[in-house]
Design a binder for these strands. Structure first.
Lengths: 183, 183
DNA sequence: AGCTTATATGTCTATATTTACATATAGGAA
DNA sequence: TTCCTATATGTAAATATAGACATATAAGCT
């Protein structure tokens, strides 16, 4: 049982999902291709951490909808109390920044502008996600969910993503301001 | 030539470093163990991207000090102009947050408090790094390096790390405030 | 004298992850 | 009709990464 496996169980605690859904939902927090997810789900099912139900759909191919078993819920609780590994960020752009003073000015600016645009796109996705969460679970007046709400975690994560997005956007703009156009 | 290889070249653009130094310096931006670094350096040296000089030390074991060759500098420039891959963050804690509403209150608070403490430690390291940079290269009056300064990139990255650290710290405190003690 | 830590370099094996290959349904666009 | 995209699931092979094993110097501690 590796970290990704527990992550899948963690998502299934909230609700049942297909493998395809799980892939899309875990992506922002633990990048993984479907070729990694599907074999893991098969293994977790064989070992009785999860089970699935075949669901036919009209407009789309059939799917397997997975849910937690009792054993899966137990494993999840044990995992939660273990100390978490340090976060690991791998960002090619940050490696490029090391040699930025040796690059052409226009190249350096393009690199930062590309990243700024990327953050802009990501920002929209996170805002959509937040809107989707608010629809799925209308939490009370002030716009804040209760800690006991199944979507509480998803809300915290989406807020975290937006906060990080804002900081990264700010950094890009600041770095660009230090590199005026035209060398 | 994978991303880590280019990252090593990128560091060597700034100055010559031993494999051990490279490992320590690249860690915060691209996690990698020495068992991954040393074989890569040997391969890069065989393929004439870098060369090394054996340096004897009094108080420490001998070391290989690597520097870029002309071919390495060329490769670096080509790489810089290619679009960078999306950043990949893998954070076990974030996966745990998905099922936080099903965990015990004290467990959830401990998870966040542990992360808050981690950010505190990291913060000190980044501040030390910033102080070290300021020593190695005294940049002018206002405390800002010129874009042409070899340590300009390292300065941007350290500032980025500190900004992210502050945001993550803020998120932990906010999340903890939503989870008052004693369930 | 033996233990631990930091420095320093390396290999070997296991695991994690990506890339490519494969198939199928259905909608919309060219 | 053909192409592209999203949905949906899978396998095989290549690559990247981590963990374990190995060795060596020198300082400081017990």
């Amino acid at each position: 049982m590796n970290t990704l496996s527990y992550g899948l169980l963690s998502l299934l605690a909230q609700s049942s999902f297909s493998g395809y859904d799980l892939m899309l939902r875990i992506q922002p927090f633990w990048p993984a291709k479907h070729s990694q997810i599907y074999p893991l789900l098969a293994k977790l099912e064989q070992e009785d951490y999860i089970r699935f139900e075949l669901v036919s759909q009209r407009d789309k191919p059939d799917k397997k909808v997975y849910s937690l078993t009792g054993k899966g819920q137990e494993a999840l609780k044990d995992w939660f109390d273990q100390p978490a590994a340090e976060p690991a960020l791998r960002d090619e752009m940050m490696l490029k920044v090391f040699c930025m003073s040796y690059a052409k000015r226009e190249s350096a600016r393009k690199m930062l502008a590309d990243r700024l645009a990327y953050h802009g796109e990501q920002r929209q996705k996170y805002e959509s996600k937040l809107a989707e969460l608010k629809e799925r679970a209308e939490w009370p007046e002030a716009g804040l969910p209760e800690p006991s709400h199944p979507l509480f975690g998803a809300y915290l994560l989406t807020r975290k993503a937006i906060m990080s997005n804002e900081t990264n956007t700010e950094w890009c703009k600041w770095a660009l301001s230090l590199l005026p156009e035209g060398d």
